[in-house]
């Protein structure tokens, strides 16, 4: 007897000191409504605490919410921390990211960048695509 297919598990967090959690809460609900399991870590996480949670929760993807212009250092730091831990988990950044920064982030190993205008369907599909691309 084969096991059942499991919903995708997504760790959602904010890195650093940025204190807005409205956007990330909306994304949590979007992903739940798309049938995913969201492990919600909330604010003030570090790359280490996210790696630890992703390991223990066997996350399929990590969603980072960014609104404080720290994405150019924090995003690549996250990718590096995951690589150091030998975790091949795609990282998706959501929030306010200037167009010019998107390609450098993708070059640094970020799987996708979602702007504030993304629809619920786009958000869910981006996560699914990032997971299938990583497998």
């Amino acid at each position: 007897m084969a096991g059942t297919d499991l919903p995708l598990r997504v760790v959602l967090a904010k890195l650093g000191l940025d204190g807005h959690d409205r956007g990330i809460k909306v994304v949590a609900r979007i992903l739940r409504d798309a049938g995913m399991e969201v492990i919600y870590l909330g604010l003030r996480q570090t790359t280490d605490s996210i790696v630890a949670a992703a390991e223990q929760e066997d996350a399929d993807a990590i969603g980072l919410s960014m609104h404080n212009a720290g994405h150019m250092t924090l995003g690549p730091n996250m990718v590096k921390a995951l690589r150091d831990a030998e975790l091949e988990i795609p990282v998706i950044i959501g929030g306010i990211v200037p167009d010019d920064d998107v390609q450098p982030l993708l070059d640094a190993g970020i799987a996708a960048v979602l702007g504030p205008g993304a629809s619920a369907e786009e958000v869910a599909q981006t996560v699914r695509d990032a997971v299938s691309a990583a497998v």
Binding site: P7, A28, R29, L31, R32, D33, A34, G35, M36, E37, V38, I39, Y40, L41, G42, A53, E57
Partner: peptide, 8 residues
């Protein structure tokens, strides 16, 4: 789907 909030 689910929002697993115990951890936070």
């Amino acid at each position: 789907g689910a929002i697993l909030g115990d951890r936070i």
